[in-house]
Write a protein that binds this DNA or RNA. Structure first.
Lengths: 257, 257
DNA sequence: CGATGTTATTAACCTGTGTTAATGCTCGGA
DNA sequence: TCCGAGCATTAACACAGGTTAATAACATCG
């Protein structure tokens, strides 16, 4: 299996849960449809529509977001390269939120039939999909806590920690930092602050020597300090290979669910 | 099948997704373990622990919540009578949040084996479980939008609309209102406001004649007005029986996942 | 039925973040 | 090379909501 293919990063991410066999990797590769390229602020799928497959971000950056009738917007999740959006889409009639790119992105789609095929023939892969879903939910809960309880500074710091660790998990981070192709106003919609206050907050993070953002990327100067400020505990990302432990509990459930 | 048994309300709720056969209902009833009674602020399961089954709230009121190291707390979800907490618990090693009662509650547990049995023999029931999970997630996304973008007044109003509709879905609401056995300080931790400001906000909602809270219950004076103020659109609760439509898409996936 | 703790209410004051608006950057396109 | 449009940055000011603290209303329980 070549080291760099379309869904190389997805595989890399899933392997944070459990190692995949050659056969499973092949199955994933075969599932991938053609790649589509999107520009910088295009919708992959809109609120109210019905999804027809599972999209995988090959490269770029995307998000889920919801808008209130009067235009206020909240970004409720980021999609990094290797992320899937999303496996549960088959059951509910309509999307209750919109998914859009935040940067030029390549996206491949695992068609519905391919996903069905994988989930009926590859229980371990299925379990990895499920794990991925659960991690996504855990991230959502963290965002709720952040927005509800953390100060502006902590909130931005926490988001940066999360993005950095998630980028690491797919090998897209260096010790110095990682890409974060997002404008300040998009950051504002993410952490529920005004654009102006995001700017002030970034300035402060720079001043105290923790992180800085330049030309759409994150430069980490003091990861330990950033973590401490954010009270960041990466446990919720479940990145320490729980596959083996899981096996004992989930085999039957996953096969049948 | 008797009209009022332990998991009567769970069944009632699941039937918002699709009607269940007599056989499926029996299977659910047989799955239910003994009832446990909890007092008012007891933990059902704590962050870091591993869950051993699916708990169903028979009566009472509970919540998921997370605490920051310094004591700030965010409630990230409510469990009403009939709610399950929660079906996905089998896969991840540890809970990333705590579940506690907010009022005296009776809780029954579907043991792991019983859930496995149901999910392997009753695909439609399985699908209903899944639907339930997806609705829970959609609720989480709404809370994120609320806390991120809505004002205090809108936030509280939106929460009240949601609770009222969810209580209706299990037959626990009257045209006048429903129970909401939660203190103002717990409300504060829910909507991410201070206790004092929750009090101010309730006063204002009372003053304009929309809702009032007295002795742990919600008295709705003007539902239309409340909805309008909150910009509440119940669509995300997916309560209009999507079962039939779903069947076409999800059968294979659900059987195998 | 009073003692005690919890919850609700209110007032006065404070602050973190929002708003508005002006200025300056940066980068892709003609 | 210059233009234009979106971004970033900053300052001045406004306000929603937080904090503190005091009191009042309820429960619960001997």
């Amino acid at each position: 299996m070549p080291e760099s293919t379309l869904i190389h990063l997805l595989i890399r991410k899933l392997e944070n849960f459990a190692e995949l066999t050659e056969e499973e990797k092949v199955a994933l590769h075969e599932a991938a449809g053609p790649v589509r390229s999107y520009g910088s602020h295009e919708d992959l799928i809109r609120e109210g529509e019905h999804a027809h497959g599972v999209s995988v971000i090959v490269s770029g950056f995307a998000c889920r977001h919801k808008m209130l009738p009067d235009g206020r917007r909240q970004i409720i999740g980021y999609f990094l390269p290797g992320d899937m959006c999303d496996a549960r889409v088959f059951i509910l009639k309509k999307m209750d939120h919109t998914i859009s790119t935040l940067a030029p992105s390549s996206v491949t789609t695992l068609p519905r039939e391919a996903v069905l095929n994988i989930t009926s023939h590859h229980p371990r892969l299925t379990r990895a999909f499920w794990w991925n879903t659960l991690v996504e939910e855990a991230i959502g809960r963290q965002w709720l806590v952040s927005i509800g309880q953390r100060t502006a500074l902590e909130r931005v710091a926490h988001l940066f920690c999360e993005v950095y660790v998630r980028m690491q998990a797919v090998g897209l981070a260096t010790p110095e930092g990682c890409e974060l192709p997002v404008t300040q106003s998009e950051l504002a919609d993410t952490v529920a602050l005004s654009t102006v206050h995001v700017n002030r907050t970034l300035k402060e993070l720079r001043r105290v020597g923790l992180v800085s953002m330049s030309s759409k990327s994150l430069v980490i100067h003091d990861l330990a300090g950033l973590r401490a400020l954010a009270m960041f505990d990466p446990g919720y990302l479940h990145l320490e290979g729980e596959g083996l432990i899981k096996d004992r509990y989930s085999h039957g459930l996953l096969k049948s669910l």
